[in-house]
Amino acid sequence: MGGAMALTLGALAYPGMLGLSKVSTAPDRVIANTQWGPLTESDRDFVVKVRAAGLWEYPVGQIGLQKGTTKGVIEASKHLVDGHSALDTTCRKIAPMLNITLPNIASPQQEGFVNTLKSESGKKFDTDFANILRMTHGSIFNTVAKIRSTTKNSLVRALADQANDTVLDHITVMEKTGLVDFDQTLFQQTTPPKLPDSDLTPPPPPAGQPEVVLTPPPNATSTPVDIDGLTAGNGGGGNAAPSPSPTVG
């Protein structure tokens, strides 16, 4: 997979203040030049965002399969597990290629969503499930589009393509439950609460901790990006010359 890679900086562990709303102070700053194109702060933060989303939405999908009381919620739960396991496979494959450290647990805010849904049942669960997930997917949709239209890194671009399809699918299945309160959801989506960065930041994994893997379901229909095929004609053999070191501010 990919051969040698020319990174101009050390390990790109995301900093402690990397939140999931405003993720960096200089999003366009190039932090590494790789054989797949320059990597900016926004690129790195996007990979972390996608990983963190799966770390809470995948278990919520599993909860929905157990607690959902309508066909729509059950179907939406299947899509969460299926889609995020495939996205996670792509994230875990490209992260070491780009020297990005991935979290093993979601942010405190995201874990709060999981705990809320764990404590609920019946109609309350179904309704909150559909509205929380419609709100969070709607919030990330614009971020995916921006990354897709601006990144110069082919690996990040491929992840954004996959994330775009997955997020749109999940928005659609949430709406098909018939439980989404659009006025409330769109208000929460466009007017999020002002939380401290610590609530919005997935903590870095302790040194040596095994990487959490989101296992695809037996009947998976979503597929990860074919990174080997993507990189075969794009420096995949490790023959690309290193790019000049970026100026770090």
Rank of each mutant, 00 (worst) to 15 (best):
P103G: 05
S198T: 14
R51W: 04
E75I: 09
A160Y: 01
A11F: 12
F113T: 03
T70N: 07
N33F: 05
Y58F: 15
L200Q: 02
G72H: 06
K118G: 03
D183R: 10
D199K: 11
E41Q: 09
G64M: 11
F46Q: 00
V144R: 00
L18Q: 07
A240Y: 14
V156N: 01
R44E: 09
T143F: 02
Q188L: 15
V47G: 00
K124E: 15
Q66I: 14
S198F: 08
V50G: 01
P203G: 06
P244R: 06
E111I: 08
L133T: 02
S245E: 13
S149W: 02
A32E: 04
L80K: 04
Q109A: 14
M17C: 10
G233I: 03
I31C: 06
T223Q: 15
E211A: 14
G208A: 04
T89R: 06
V73H: 02
K67E: 11
D126Q: 08
K49C: 10
A207N: 08
Y58M: 09
I63P: 00
T166H: 00
L159I: 03
R134A: 15
L200G: 00
R148F: 15
T177R: 05
E111M: 13
I94H: 01
H84Y: 15
K152H: 12
A207K: 07
G61H: 08
S85Q: 08
S121L: 11
G237Q: 12
K194T: 15
T190Q: 14
R148V: 09
L87F: 05
D226M: 10
L80V: 09
